[in-house]
C-alpha cells in the first residue's frame, strides 16, 4: 500500500477542511443574512465547482497561480517558490474545489437557527461577532460538522483537479487517488485493490461516525 500517498491525502484533506472552515463560516453567514441584490451571483460562483468539470477548474487555477499571473508572481516574490506542482498549489485548488461542500451545509445550518435568537442577543448588548460565536455557531454545529466532513471526504477522493494542478510527484502531489490510478496503469491490481479498500473503509468510518455524532447532537440542541 502506498502509505506516502495516503499520508499526503490526509494532510491535504485536513488542511483544506481547516482553511475552508475559516473561510466558509463567514461566507455562509454573509450568504444567509445579506440582503444585497447581487447575492445570487456570489451563490452561483460558490456553487460552480459542483457542476464544473474538475479539469476546467484545474485549468483555470493553474493559469491563476502560474508564475506569469499576479498572484503567482507575488507568491514567488514572497516565498521564492512556485505554486503549480507544489503542495501549497494543490491546497489552493482543493479549497476552491470543495468550497460549496462547506458553504452549503453551513449556510443551511445557519438558516435553520431562529433569527430572533440572534436579535435577542443583539438587543442584550452583545456584538454581532460575539453573537455569532455564542449563539449561531453552537446552534448550527450539525450543519458545520456536515460541511467539514463532506469537505474532508471530497478532498480525500479528488482526482482531476490534483492531476491538473499538482501533477504526480511522489511525496509532494501524488495523492491516494493518483496513486491508485498509477497502480492500475502499471497493472498492479493487488496494490490498487488494497489502497482502494483502505480508502473505502476510511470514508465509510468517517461518515458513519458523523451520522452517529449528529444523532447525539440533535436531541441536545433542538432547533425548533
Amino acid at each position: 500500500m502506498d502509505w506516502q500517498a495516503i499520508w499526503l491525502s490526509v494532510r491535504l484533506a485536513v488542511s483544506t477542511t481547516l482553511i475552508l472552515l475559516a473561510l466558509g463560516l463567514p461566507l455562509a453567514y454573509w450568504i444567509t443574512f445579506s440582503r444585497r441584490r447581487w447575492k445570487f451571483l456570489v451563490e452561483a460562483v460558490v456553487s460552480l465547482p459542483l457542476v464544473l468539470p474538475p479539469t476546467v477548474l484545474g485549468f483555470y487555477v493553474l493559469l491563476a497561480i502560474g508564475p506569469r499571473s499576479p498572484a503567482g508572481a507575488l507568491y514567488a516574490r514572497l516565498t521564492g517558490g512556485m505554486l503549480p506542482f507544489s503542495f501549497q498549489g494543490l491546497l489552493v485548488a482543493s479549497v476552491l474545489y470543495s468550497l460549496p461542500f462547506t458553504v452549503q451545509p453551513v449556510a443551511a445550518g445557519f438558516a435553520a437557527v431562529d433569527r430572533r435568537l440572534l436579535e435577542a442577543s443583539w438587543c442584550l448588548g452583545v456584538s454581532r461577532l460575539a453573537t455569532f460565536r455564542r449563539i449561531l455557531v453552537p446552534l448550527a454545529i450539525p450543519g458545520i460538522a456536515t460541511g467539514a466532513i463532506l469537505s474532508f471526504a471530497h478532498t480525500m477522493g479528488e482526482f482531476g483537479v490534483v492531476l491538473m494542478v499538482g501533477g504526480n510527484i511522489a511525496g509532494v502531489t501524488r495523492t491516494v487517488s493518483i496513486s491508485i490510478y498509477d497502480q492500475v496503469q502499471a497493472l498492479n491490481y493487488a496494490a490498487a485493490g488494497e489502497t482502494s479498500l483502505f480508502l473505502l473503509g476510511l470514508s465509510f468510518t468517517v461518515l458513519a461516525l458523523t451520522y452517529a455524532l449528529q444523532r447525539r447532537i440533535w436531541p441536545v440542541w433542538p432547533l425548533s
Binding site: 431562529d114 430572533r116 435568537l117 435577542a120 438587543c123 448588548g125 441536545v220 432547533l223
Partner: peptide, 20 residues
C-alpha cells in the same frame, strides 16, 4: 444606533430563550 447601543430589553412573543 445599533440594537446593542440602544439597550432595549426585547421580549419576543415566544421569549426566544437560547435553547442550548
Amino acid at each position: 444606533l445599533a440594537p446593542q447601543q440602544r439597550r432595549t430589553g426585547f421580549l419576543f412573543q415566544d421569549y426566544a430563550l437560547f435553547p442550548h
